[in-house]
Computed example of a mutant assay.
Amino acid sequence: MQPKFKKSYKFAINTSLYITIYVTLFTSVFLYAFYSFNTKFILLLAFSTYLFSFVVIQFSVERFIYKRVKKIYDDLTLLESTSMTKGTITTDMKTLTEEIDKFARDKKIEIESLKVREQYRKEFLGNVSHELKTPLFTVQGYILTLLDGAMEDKNLRDKYLERASKGVERLGYIVKDLDMITKLEVGDLSLNQEVFNIVELVKSVFEMLEMKASKKRITLTFDADYFTPILVNADKERIQQVLANLIVNSIKYGREKGTTEVSIENLIKNKVIVRVTDNGEGIEKKNLSRIFERFYRVDKSGSRKEGGSGLGLSIVKHIIEAHQEKIYVESEFGVGSEFSFTLEKAK
């Protein structure tokens, strides 16, 4: 739809007033000096000068400015998506300047946002390429070695096949976790919310990871005895995944004979907060702001020895945010870490 034209009379009014004052004063002095002074004539002259000046200036300004302003609106096709095309075209320079400044600021923010996204996209593609390349080369190396003759040695064959299998398993982790994050981001992964006892869920995760923890002699425990159920409303399967990821991380980066402790506390009337605390190696401050990014690793070498996709904490964050809840992290390097998240209490 063609924008409407909004007139502005301020410039014409002020300019006509200045012209009228000048002409009237000049004529008055001239008449007083050379002829007889006539008050009615001076008033008529002032009125006619003002009216004539106003009409001429306003008409000229409208044609001059409107043509150029309209061309700005027509030429800047990017403005079609902004509120400027929905409003009126104005000859008021202050209003026009404010609109153009606002448009420029909005576009600057949009461009900066696109630059950040572009940088993130480059980093993400680089990380995906690197993470997929490592297990692929591993599997390819072992298979080529077997094809080159190592298959004849039964012990070597079994060992290499087992290592190739782990590489394929790692590829599976990465693809599965990437698929889940994508679905969470676009909202395709629906949550199956139900009421369940969070204490029992933590116990089941402890049992599931008991053997993994025992290899490093890490104790999985609650901070206190929970004799009564604590009921929450959430997707039980996804919250189990959150707890498993957090506890696996605490074991992975925990110290020998360490402890992973889970506590569940009332936060506000309708919220509980679940804390997963360990006395492991901790996280340096420079890494805290990035630990929920995809593929970001605090310990590049250690995490690969333990396997996984490098997407665990990113998935945790997406699941919690899909529940409209918050996740927090506190850590002191060399002392330990605490990850906590909120959940809605069942009514």
Rank of each mutant, 00 (worst) to 15 (best):
R238W: 02
S83Q: 05
K7W: 12
K159L: 12
S303P: 03
R157Y: 10
V242Y: 01
M1N: 07
V168S: 06
T97K: 14
E338Q: 15
R163E: 13
R297T: 07
K326T: 11
Q324R: 13
I57D: 01
S190E: 15
M93D: 12
A46Y: 05
S263T: 13
G167V: 13
N127P: 05
Q324F: 15
S48T: 13
I239W: 01
F341E: 03
E306W: 14
K257Y: 12
S8E: 09
D158G: 04
T49N: 10
K257T: 08
K305G: 14
S53G: 09
V128H: 02
N249T: 06
L146D: 00
V276I: 15
N197K: 09
G307T: 05
N127Y: 08
T342Y: 07
E332I: 12
R290P: 01
S60T: 12
Y9F: 15
T95I: 14
G310C: 10
T182F: 14
Q241T: 14
F41N: 14
F103R: 04
S337C: 09
K159Q: 10
T182C: 07
E293D: 12
M84W: 05
T88H: 08
Y253V: 04
T95A: 14
A244P: 00
A33R: 14
K94E: 11
T39M: 11
A150C: 06
L45P: 03
P135H: 08
A224Y: 13
E207L: 15
I264D: 07
N127D: 05
K212R: 10
T219L: 09
M211S: 07
E332K: 15
L288G: 01
T97E: 11
T228L: 11
L78R: 00
G172Q: 07
E162R: 13
